[in-house]
């Protein structure tokens, strides 16, 4: 449906295409369903479960002792903003699985977080360098409101999949909806196919 008097501001013009329905944002908006949980790196730990068995767990120091990966990427939030050229540092899920000495899982994975947040993605979307645990944003420790000390980053999917304050990944055979997915957000969430909500 055309809105005849609408021409759009289109400022700033994106230097490269951004996904449909998105606009460019210079700031870094915070969107969380609850308050920012208090997380202490002295007691923080992260674990990976496969089919109900814990196959690896890492303290803050252990995570930082693993090989680190730098990632420059664009972010796309389902609330319509996109942010280009963000700089992150962290550990790929491949590195964690390798450190745990397990084979790369198939199926699906649920991220579990401090505060109770969850989100689901196919296992294939966190391996081969596509998923990281990040602790550094733009050269600084990741701020608590942005998910610090550690958040998941899966930048090719809408940002609600990049769970803040992540504490575990649980691989499973069957897909199952996480926090927003139960409220009708898309099970996969590809911004380029504009998979915002169930049925998209």
């Amino acid at each position: 449906m055309i809105n005849n008097k609408f021409f759009g501001r289109r400022r700033p013009e994106p230097p490269r295409p951004i996904p449909p329905g998105q606009y460019l944002e210079d700031g870094f908006p915070v969107l969380s369903a609850g308050p920012t949980p208090r997380v202490d790196t002295a007691t923080w730990g992260f674990s990976i479960e496969i089919e109900g068995n814990t196959v690896g767990s890492w303290s803050w120091d252990a995570l930082n002792a693993l090989p680190q990966t730098d990632l420059h990427t664009d972010l796309h939030c389902v609330t319509k903003w996109s942010k280009l050229d963000t700089a992150w540092r962290g550990v790929t899920i491949d590195t964690l699985l390798n450190d745990a000495g397990v084979e790369v899982p198939t199926g699906f994975v649920m991220a579990h977080c401090d505060g109770g947040y969850t989100t689901n993605v196919p296992a294939a979307d966190v391996i081969d360098g596509k998923g990281l645990l990040v602790h550094t944003y733009d050269g600084e420790p990741l701020a608590p409101e942005h998910g610090g000390p550690v958040r998941l980053l899966i930048p090719h999917l809408y940002l609600w999949k990049s769970a803040k304050w992540v504490r575990s990944l649980k691989f499973m055979d069957q897909d199952s909806p996480g926090f927003w997915e139960r409220y009708g957000y898309h099970m996969y969430g590809d911004p380029w196919r504009e998979q915002r909500y169930t049925g998209d």
Binding site: M1, I2, N3, N4, F6, F7, G8, R10, P20, G21, Y23
Partner: peptide, 9 residues
């Protein structure tokens, strides 16, 4: 909103 040239916001 959709502009006459197809641009949407």
């Amino acid at each position: 909103l959709t502009a006459p040239d197809g641009y949407q916001a």
